[in-house]
Design a protein around this nucleic acid. Structure first.
Lengths: 237, 237
DNA sequence: GCGTGCCAAATTGTATACAAAATCTCTATT
DNA sequence: AATAGAGATTTTGTATACAATTTGGCACGC
């Protein structure tokens, strides 16, 4: 069962994904990376050349990304990268707050001992990166912590929904850069809900994680509105 | 049968949507209606003939439905209507509970006077349909009430997520038929959270709606597991 | 000078032909 | 008889050609 007969090398031919699948991955990365900025039009043929695929798999990929909310499809008028609208982001954060609460509650109930240990390790890593001032590494670890808690909840529906919104929020955060004060505050909040999680206190963990989410939303939205305001002003002047 | 290929006649005052869009609507209806039962394979060409479209728009429609969770796409192996797995449904209900709580809370905060009046009207209609024993009409009104509350929350992200899961749950409910006792209980719960909503008591409304969701989940899952058990037994004998 | 209608260019929507992968079937061998 | 394997068949994945729709520009009329 596990010995491929004509297997030639170990590295190469594990599995070849479809072009559509890799187009989705490629485009998603381009959007989250900021290479395709929010609001930019997405002409099909141009992207086809860039990705080296024909329009058929590309169009199917665009439908997938539209379902994730990363692009908007206007019939007969092409696709645009979904603009980062503070109002929409605020709405997403509201839902995220509810999802994080649920995730923390379920994680306390369903997480394994090993998973809690790994969570502690990630938390230590986060603290070290904060102390060292490694912003990029910090935010990646931060994302991994939250995703890990969601995974501990053992709920596929929650996981899928969460990661979709997380991608949207990531885009917003890349535009909004919050200050050192908020960073310190955020670290303190992590300490708080981690304590609750360690003691398997579902209610407290849920409440603290929700509060953390709410405060993050406030900071991101404040910075976002400020930046958008400046951008609008620059456009006029 | 009703859409000849060369139909050029004025189908409507306004222009029709794209074939892909109507294919999505058609397929979604077929799945929710039970015409395409859970677990059934979905050969592309056969559906093309049935819907009168070519494979291109159909495949794009399948991607959309896959994102909604109504079909599963296995690379190179075709699509199947997502099976109704009690474990998955239970997970969805858990998320739904959190979403309903949020919806009730936000509805109290953001709903307009006119919307609350309409909500009352829907509730009265629900009560009348219960008294008359009109099960089908009742469950449609029931869905409209919940969707209405979600709409009152003024949160597009919530609305989209909610309706996706609602579709999944609808499929499960059509398989599971709960009894008269649960019906009466459900009606009483509606009375309860409606009272809280009328007085704009966000916390109580949220809690009661969550409890209603939880009890509905219990009833549906119980019936579902029972039915699945019977089906499995029938398969053996 | 400005608005209106129509034509041309570009872009998206759809159909179809072809390539690649998986499944099925039948045969040959142990 | 059971099983492995090689072809045949079916089904999905991709490219491309063509049709339909939108958009931009230009001439014409007010």
């Amino acid at each position: 069962m596990d010995t491929p007969k004509t297997a030639k090398a170990a590295t190469g031919p594990i599995r070849r994904a479809t072009l559509q699948h890799s187009a989705v991955a490629e485009l998603r990365a381009m959007i989250l990376e900021g290479e395709l900025p929010p609001g930019s039009r997405v002409p099909e043929v141009q992207l086809c050349e860039q990705l080296g695929v024909s329009r058929t798999p590309l169009r199917e990929a665009l439908r997938v990304l539209a379902a994730e909310g990363l692009v908007e499809l206007r019939p007969h008028r092409g696709a645009v990268v979904t603009p980062v609208d503070p109002t929409d982001i605020a709405a997403i954060f509201q839902v995220m707050e509810a999802l994080e609460t649920l995730a923390a509650t379920l994680a306390c109930r369903n997480g394994t001992e090993a998973e809690f240990i790994e969570l502690d390790r990630l938390h230590d890593q986060l603290m070290a990166q904060h102390k060292a001032g490694e912003r990029a590494a910090y935010s990646m670890t931060n994302r991994r912590i939250h995703a890990w808690i969601v995974a501990m909840a053992r709920n596929p529906a929650l996981e899928t929904t969460y990661s979709g919104f997380a991608a949207q929020i990531l885009r917003a955060r890349s535009l909004a850069n919050y200050d050192a004060d908020r960073w310190q505050e955020s670290v303190d909040e992590h300490d708080g809900f981690m304590a609750a999680l360690r003691s398997r206190d579902a209610a407290t963990a849920g409440a603290l994680l929700a509060e953390h989410s709410r405060r993050t939303a406030d900071a991101v939205l404040r910075s976002l509105r400020q930046r958008m305001g400046k951008a609008a002003a620059a456009e006029v002047g």
